[in-house]
Design a protein around this nucleic acid. Structure first.
Ligand SMILES: [Mn+2]
Ligand SMILES: [Mn+2]
Ligand SMILES: [Zn+2]
Ligand SMILES: [Zn+2]
Lengths: 139, 139
DNA sequence: GAACTTAATTAGAATAGTTCTTGATCTAAA
DNA sequence: TTTAGATCAAGAACTATTCTAATTAAGTTC
């Protein structure tokens, strides 16, 4: 009895997610993001996955991140004009930027809250995406 | 009987707002923004106030906008990685980005809504600023 | 008001995150 | 195995913004 070819790669990530073929570079980017709550930048991803893929380029990291974002595998998060950050949390959530430490924290909504119900939107508005960003201090 | 020196400038803007001396350049930037709902970019402000101040520089427009924002006279609004936009509406409000037309619209909250009450924030969190951005279509 | 001091403006160079270009390499299909 | 398309790597290019240095304007002191 022979074993079937596995769908799981050396990184522990399947061959394909949401219709996106998971190349080795995409696997490494995704695997790193999945283990991070810190919302790393492209450059931070680059530095980190070079450990596993010494020849990877920053352009490829950007390409991978763009592909992952477009296929809704991770999310891109922007704070003002700072470098984009990337978030593995696909649940609806906001982002709290702690000014004291510079850290970013996910913020859940209280149960049963529908953001759009609280907004004075014109009728027939189709909302495809909501983004909530908070700035402050964790006293 | 002689008239007293007026505190109002040729632009109709006072000499000082929120502790910021309103130079001619700042006046023109501010006056233009006050008459706009479109959330213009720095470059759009630049193009427009050149009509009144042909020698104004883009660097000055950026300087003016930064000063106005820091003194809470106007607000800076960012959408993803697009150029910053500027908003004269100081009331608490969000921004709806209509994907079809590319236009931006202010969105009020329904009366009596406190955003922070709806979020699952850790205790002792001091929120200094909230930003809400919506993307979608005006069907 | 002249001399002095500080703030603001200008033009252009510099910066930095991101995107683009091009040629090489990999993958999947035929 | 050939072919076609996708992906990758390296570096150039792009662009919104910031910085630098010189000039001008405004406010202050005599
Ligand atoms: Mn980071
Ligand atoms: Mn605009
Ligand atoms: Zn997040
Ligand atoms: Zn607004």
């Amino acid at each position: 009895m022979t074993t079937q070819p596995s769908q799981i790669q050396p990184t522990g990530i399947p061959e394909e997610i949401n219709g996106l073929r998971m190349t080795r570079q995409r696997q490494e980017v995704y695997r790193f993001l999945m283990g991070e709550q810190s919302h790393p930048t492209a450059n931070e991803v680059f530095i980190r996955i070079k450990e596993a893929l010494p020849n990877v380029s920053l352009a490829t990291v950007y390409n991978c991140l763009e592909a992952l974002v477009q296929h809704k595998i991770v999310r891109q998060v922007n704070f003002d004009r700072e470098p984009s950050r990337y978030c593995p949390n696909l649940d609806e959530h906001g982002h709290f930027h702690d000014e004291t430490t510079g850290t970013i924290h996910d913020v859940k909504f209280k149960p049963g809250i529908k953001l759009t119900d609280l907004l004075d939107l014109p009728p027939n508005t189709v909302i495809k995406d909501i983004e909530i960003t908070l700035r402050g201090q964790l006293a």
